[in-house]
Amino acid sequence: MSIRVIKAGVLDSIQDAGRFGWQFLGVNPSGVMDRFSSEIANMLVGNDPGEVVIELHFPASIFLFEEPSLVAIAGADLSASVNGEPVPVLHPVLVNKGTVIQFHRYRSGARACLAIHGGIVADEWLGSRSTQLQVMAGGFHGRALRKDDQIDLKKNTFAPLDMGDKDFVILPWRADVNWRNESERGDVLYVLPGHEWDWITQESKDEVLSTPFTVTQQSDRMGYKLKNAPLILNRNDELISSPVSFGTIQLLPNGQLIILMADHQTAGGYPRIAHIISADHSKAAQLKAGDEIRFKKTGQHEAEKLFFKQQQHLHQLQNACKFRLEEFFGE
């Protein structure tokens, strides 16, 4: 039971929901960038939502399935194909033994989560199977996937389905990812003011909340550097290092902002201008160089409310997926 990398992508790694409890030793949480999407991909194939996924960047790896598998892709749409025929995101897909999955171009988003029914065998380190690239631990030997890597799969619990000579079968239901129900511009990220929000001038505050920021090439799993007119501090105090979080937006000495992402450092000494709300972390995780974003300020209550709404949606989706899978496989 395994899949094999027949061509390596630019940065594909094994990630779970993250490694918590070790930031006091400087070990960052890592984990999947888009947790919302990784949970959906897992639910579609009947896994625990926190199961390991393969996080794909573009250009992504090409994989060979050595056994029939039930898979799902969520997050970015990278135009996947199985043996050359397109397969959609957000559907469970049965792929036959000996088939090849590859990803052709960006259609939307930046990072895709590939989940496989039963789960993936991965190294555990400090309670998590996420790949920690700095210390080379966890996941697949602590590193990004390479050509010829053989990734072992855990046990397949569904009754084997006779796929005949078909390469794949797309199961006829799709996960609804639209949890918000209201029309919100796709490029808007809600933020809570950071503790040093008042360290920037009124003009700079207006700029943060009314002008678009561009995601620059210097953007990776650690963070995204943004580009706009430089922001102006109204004080010169040097900050001593203090903890930061996924989604913290810091002001760099050159007046530009950086959004901290999954592989962020555990502490930082730059002014914390704002924090992207948890409900928008998924949106942030799907940004890539060149994208334009806008920030909209919100309050603690509203931020929490949106997060609960999103988590509620996931909960319902999990039940629906479970029901459909059991019905289909006749349990």
Binding site: G21, I240, S242, F308
Partner: peptide, 21 residues
Amino acid sequence: MIESVPAYSSLSIFYDPVKLK
């Protein structure tokens, strides 16, 4: 609480808002 992180003169507590809610 998920974890707490000490720094020079500050400490952060990370918590699970959904579980608490």
